[in-house]
Design a protein around this nucleic acid. Structure first.
Lengths: 223, 223
DNA sequence: CGAAAGTGAGTGTTCACTCACTCATTTATT
DNA sequence: AATAAATGAGTGAGTGAACACTCACTTTCG
């Protein structure tokens, strides 16, 4: 593929961020690692300090609370999630670059898989947080969902009009895409055996292409 | 559908269990509710006692530790998961009852969705535990995966031989099934808006039927 | 020297867990 | 049948440890 890959935004942001001392960066890194390894509640601030090679007071120099530290760890990726989800989904991109649905899906899947792999720890922390914090979850969803529907919707409509994609409601198609993405993330997070990037990629593209290609018996008997 | 539905095994087991006082049952119920609402670590034993209308000492009368209490809450469902996953997957059932792949998937999906709905809280607690406890996770997977492959495998081979199912490796097919199940569970757990049982069911069956029906371009270029 | 970064002993609170005790019911003794 | 003894579920104040967070002080660096 000739397209540029989505890079590891988190690392990038950490590096770009100026006013940050090596110790503060070590604290962020140790927090991320430990939160992903053991979970937020099971990680003590003294764990973090120890892993980062720093006194506990140093952690609280910049971050007022442990929760604020988690927010600081997640801030860079949180800002990138919506653009990642929606990028490539423009009619322009679509018509200029991709000759077929499969080619389109290949490009989309490839980038997203890279992003997930590069930010797996952050995603794990986000999922843990979202699992039991309904308020935060709703805030996130209420920001992401409409943008997805809006940015992706017109392209889906175009694909459907061109008979390139199954004629389902857009929210069902988006749900299909996201289900596969969640499944992929879950498989990575759970460290299931026998998974490899190439195999996952081939599989994801095959499933999505098959589901989203229009067929003969596609009527969904939904109101 | 004329088939019997899978019932709410957890409630059933709680009732069947003899030597259990009302207070002890209240403790189990309160634990399950609170673990699912707030998460295990965020639930204190005094929370549980209060919700159950019981003194904190009563909790420790039967359960040595808080973790043992969680295990007791999950024990009934844990014993049922493998049978649920594998039931219906016998060649006998398949040929006697189901005229088509779609009819087969409809029956399978229906029962599993009932089970998930009836045991959603328990599943949430299990997922939280599995997320950060690699040892437990591997123990669970090492028990479930081989049984799934064994019990489901021969039927999949039959379906493939009869040209009723796409000729993919069995583990990929199982992965497809489980991905959809996980996606469904995730959607329920996250309480996404706009979901209903009927809609989910129609959707799941449609997606699975489409993916698993043999087609023209099904070659997966995998070693 | 001044300012910012870093330190680690200290603090108040929360929490999992304990234990001496109560009380209602069952079993044994007269 | 009446009374005593034994049993075990239930209680809640108490305990020690862990934890998030603070602050008076030290070190680093421009």
């Amino acid at each position: 593929m000739s397209r540029p890959r989505i890079r590891d935004y988190f690392q990038q942001d950490l590096d770009q961020n100026q006013n940050i001392t090596p110790k503060q960066r070590a604290i962020l890194q140790a927090s991320l690692d430990l939160f992903a390894e053991k979970g937020f509640d099971q990680t003590s601030t003294s764990d973090i300090a120890q892993r980062a090679g720093v006194a506990e007071g140093t952690v609280y120099r910049r971050y007022k609370t442990k929760a604020a530290l988690r927010d600081a760890v997640l801030a860079p990726i949180a800002a990138k999630i919506v653009p990642i989800l929606a990028s490539d989904f423009s009619e322009d991109e679509l018509h200029r670059r991709y000759p077929s649905l499969q080619a389109f899906l290949t490009a989309v899947v490839n980038d997203r898989m890279q992003f997930v792999q590069n930010n797996l720890k952050e995603l794990k922390v986000i999922f843990e947080m979202a699992a039991f914090d309904a308020t935060r979850r709703e805030r996130i969803l209420s920001q992401i969902a409409p943008q997805m529907v809006q940015q992706v919707g017109s392209v889906l409509d175009q694909l459907k009009a061109d008979q390139l994609m199954v004629d389902w409601p857009n929210d069902l198609i988006i749900q299909t895409l996201l289900s596969q993405v969640f499944g992929y993330i879950a498989r990575l997070m759970m460290e299931l055996p026998g998974t490899s990037f190439d195999r996952e990629q081939t599989y994801l593209i095959a499933v999505l292409t098959k589901v989203l290609t229009p067929g003969e018996n596609d009527q969904l008997e939904i109101d």
